[in-house]
């Protein structure tokens, strides 16, 4: 990997009050690599993702996305904006813009952030809606969509940004079981396009299928990592073994 491609996180630390949630996390992600983060609740997995685009501001460490490198201690508002424009984020609770239709949820950032014309943005949004199987929902507001449909729009919104890194924060955890399958199917399609992805999930079967690498986190540390077959079938650390037994 050259120094200006892929993603490189180094020494990332995050403290909430007196609790250190992330302890000196370092990760390198190659372009097109699909990385899944697993681990017990409350071990900093979501915080890691949120720190990578400064929804939570890390206390120290550096983040490099492509040729953009920023230091948590000195990052300015412009640095943070630049970082966010190279990443996209899929939220656990979908977080669709409540005052925008499905189409507008996807086209909004294309117009305001990417400076596309309204017609170009709408055309792109409609293409994505077709791809996500929601062509008939273009003019519907989030309040009238099912959880699964909302999350597919949420993924579509992130896809439209063509980000160098897509972050998924437990995208199926808030869904009724009946909607999980359609969301995972869509994520599989994104993964097939070799989009660089960092996914926090509890869906072990899904992780095994699509991950190039799985990272196991506990207590704010990366405990161990490796290809799915290695990490899931031949875990080395006792904490990994205990966790995998619990999630079955």
């Amino acid at each position: 990997m050259t120094s200006s491609s892929g993603i490189s996180v180094s020494g990332l630390t995050k403290v909430f009050g007196t609790t250190t949630v992330l302890k000196d996390i370092s990760i390198d992600i190659a372009p097109g690599e699909r990385v899944v983060v697993i681990g017990p609740s409350g071990t900093g997995k979501s915080t890691l993702l949120r720190c990578l685009n400064f929804l939570d501001r890390p206390d120290s460490g550096t983040i490099r996305v492509g040729d953009l490198r920023i230091d948590a201690k000195t990052a300015s508002g412009a640095d943070i904006l630049a970082l966010r424009r190279r990443t996209s984020f899929v939220f656990q609770n979908y977080a669709l813009f409540a005052n925008k239709t499905a189409r507008e949820n996807i086209s909004q950032a294309l117009i305001t952030v990417k400076s596309l014309s309204r017609s170009e943005a709408n055309a792109r949004a409609d293409a994505i809606l077709r791809e996500t199987g929601l062509a008939d929902k273009a003019d519907v507001y989030p309040a009238a969509l099912s959880g699964g449909q909302q999350q597919r729009v949420g993924i579509g919104r992130a896809m439209a940004l063509d980000a160098e890194l897509m972050l998924f924060d437990e995208p199926t955890s808030a869904l009724d079981p009946e909607w999980v399958g359609e969301v995972l199917d869509l994520m599989r399609r994104v993964a097939e396009e070799r989009q660089t992805m960092l996914i926090v999930t509890h869906e072990m079967q899904f992780a095994r299928e699509i991950a190039d690498r799985i990272i196991f986190m506990a207590d704010g540390h990366i405990v161990e990592q490796g290809p799915p077959a290695q990490l899931l079938d031949l875990p080395q650390d006792d904490r990994t073994k205990a966790f995998l037994r619990r999630v079955g």
Binding site: N53, L55, R84, R85, S88, F89, F91, T112
Partner: peptide, 9 residues
């Protein structure tokens, strides 16, 4: 958060 995440000012 969603507005920030898509890179809006």
């Amino acid at each position: 958060e969603a507005s920030q995440a898509v890179g809006m000012t």
